[in-house]
């Protein structure tokens, strides 16, 4: 069941609102210098799944307030995501992003770093104009996000990384940018505390599942669709759930350890490592884990009224599981 990017979004009003956030992003960026604007918006203009704004817009439906001013945070949330992509691409030395040239490849590492900072602080600036709670929640999650990335780097090449620490990194580095839009949407639309809690819980587990699947794609995805070389994580010492499963729980641990600690991992070694992980049930274990979290996410939504917001959120869990890029 492979679906196009936003087929899961059944709520028409959210769809319509989502369509306008590109224009808002354009407005946010300073236009006094055309080259600067081109650089700053390069990644945002590529399109993309816009998962975070979509979640925010859906969460906005859970309360009974809506005002036009509540559209801007959707753009700000996307800018935070885009800012993190600018920085990620420098760290990953990625020349391509969504099958086009990345900012760092086109303008250099420093410009990509600075433009990431620019977008990020612009987004913070926008989100600071609502109220103190919104501001605090935003900054809290952002801080988690950065700490999560630092922790992930700390654990590079750590063959003994525990599941617990691994999942904790996922919660911080990925789930935080799922929780933030849902929480802000519910809060700004005046949803009840129960709903707020439910949708936050939903988004947290969605985020974990999203990253678990994303990490699986690194091991078995189609490079033409993902735009990434298979097995990059293995070379860079980022050992994700499937790899950890094989290392911690199976007879193939020694063989895999040997491959992972090779001086110069050639494509053939990567292929062999992935086959081992697959054979020993690692890939499957990661998928089972992702399904578990998606179940928790779905159950969290049970207190929401049945409508197309809820259906969309439920659809998203299927979309996450089925996605191939």
């Amino acid at each position: 069941m492979s679906k196009a990017s936003s087929d899961w979004l059944l709520c028409n009003i959210s769809k319509a609102r989502l369509a306008s956030i590109n224009a808002i992003m354009e407005e946010i960026i300073d236009a006094s210098d055309t080259n600067f604007k081109k650089l700053a918006l390069h990644t945002a203009r590529m399109g993309g799944k816009k998962l975070r704004p979509s979640l925010y817009l859906l969460a906005l439906n859970t309360g009974d307030y809506y005002g036009k001013e509540l559209l801007t945070p959707a753009a700000a949330l996307e800018l935070i995501h885009v800012a993190s992509l600018h920085h990620d691409d420098v760290m990953d030395r990625a020349d391509l992003r969504r099958n086009a040239t990345s900012v760092n490849a086109e303008w250099g590492n420093l410009n990509a770093t600075y433009s990431g900072n620019y977008l990020f602080s612009k987004a913070i600036s926008i989100l600071s104009q609502y109220d103190t709670t919104v501001n605090q929640i935003t900054c809290g999650y952002i801080s988690d996000l950065c700490l999560g990335q630092l922790k992930e780097a700390e654990n590079a090449y750590n063959l003994k990384l525990s599941y617990e620490d691994h999942i904790d990194v996922l919660i911080k580095k990925t789930a935080s940018l799922f929780e933030l839009p849902c929480k802000l949407g519910a809060l700004l639309s005046g949803a009840s505390d129960d709903i707020l809690e439910a949708i936050t819980n939903y988004s947290k587990h969605m985020g974990i599942a999203f990253q678990l699947i994303d990490d699986l794609l690194d091991l078995k995805g189609n490079p033409h669709k993902t735009g990434k070389t298979v097995g990059t994580d293995l070379i860079e010492g980022v050992y994700t759930y499937a790899t950890l499963y094989t290392l911690h729980e199976t007879d193939h641990a020694n063989k895999l350890t040997h491959l992972l600690t090779l001086d110069d991992m050639k494509p053939i070694h990567i292929q062999e490592a992935i086959e081992l992980i697959s054979l020993s049930g690692g890939l499957n274990a990661a998928k089972v884990k992702a399904k578990e979290h998606l179940e928790i996410a779905k159950n969290a939504l049970s207190i929401l009224p049945d409508n197309n917001t809820k259906t969309s959120l439920l659809n998203l869990t299927h979309f996450i599981l089925a996605r191939d890029h």
Binding site: T113, F120, S143, L145, C146, Q149, L150
Partner: peptide
Amino acid sequence: ILVGDYLLS
């Protein structure tokens, strides 16, 4: 980048 982002956040 990681330390810079962390400090900024």
